[in-house]
Amino acid sequence: MYAQMVKSEGMKSLDEMSPEERAFQERIDRGEKIEPRDWMPEGYRKTLIRQIGQHAHSEIVGQLPEGNWITRAPTLERKAILLAKVQDEAGHGLYLYCAAETLGVSRDELLEKLHSGKMKYSSIFNYPTLTWADMGAVGWLVDGAAIMNQVPLQRTSYGPYSRAMIRICKEESFHQRQGYHIMMKLARGTEAQKRMAQDALNRFWYPSLMMFGPSDKDSVHSAQSMAWKIKMNTNDELRQKFVDQTVPQAEYLGLTVPDEGLRWNDEKGGYDFTEPDWSEFFEVIKGNGPCNKERLGARVQAWEGGAWVRDGLMAHAKKHAAAKLAAE
């Protein structure tokens, strides 16, 4: 998902826990929210910093593939919509950074870790957006997949994270709908526009499935995160739900999901489908996707290029505060 393969600390049974750890786990089991100043196990804190941080980074880096089309949107209305959507993603990143900071990590520290490659962002944003139809596919599929994961996270045990997710979810549905709307327009357009829509679906289908992370059988560390209620569903559960929801939407558009193995399975009440190529996923995570260098490069450049503005405003604020104090 926006946070993929977040490593979490070891898993203990209730008997192995210290009295504090046990009381903590029992609070979570009762559905209580954990707040910043409450006692928490170090592992919970560390795992959450990694997860919320990675989620925040994904929102921020996720602006780049869509920002790519703002100046070339086909109409003024589409441009205003895309701009609003990308601005929302900036907001999402900020809500999440704030939530992470309540755990005792600083904003600069998180950004430094992103820029040095010590923290990741979602694999999906390392794919290029080649045509306008990609703006449709990203909204429909990428935001669609994100929603699938974010809706249950509104109930996560950590208060500030849960509140950030509630805000984010309120804004996400516009993102998916504007994307699907673009796809509808293209799918009902000329032959060339239809081909463009199909091509975008072809390229974004498997990368979207990868967003949920590796298959449950290969996915480490999820038991502890689930006990802590910072992961609410398994990767495969969410992926299945996403496929079941999305296939009829593709059919409505008259587009074909690029999977020969896709079949409705009456028995399980869901689709059978082909897993993405996991070796590709691991390559992208390692930094070898089509756009990794470009994305991270753009972030570092923005950070370094903006340093004089941040410093200048801070110097101005200090000077003003001093002058005000002198006048009193």
Binding site: A84, Q87, D88, G91, L94, Y95, C98, E101, R107, R163, A164, R167, E171, R310, L313, M314, H316, A317, H320, A321
Partner: peptide, 23 residues
């Protein structure tokens, strides 16, 4: 509603408007 970073109060209000009142 949340928090944010800003150099001074004036900028904090401007940022708050962009981050927390888009709708």
């Amino acid at each position: 509603v949340g928090s944010l970073h800003a150099p001074d109060a004036e900028m904090a209000i401007k940022h708050a408007r962009d981050v927390y009142t888009r709708r």
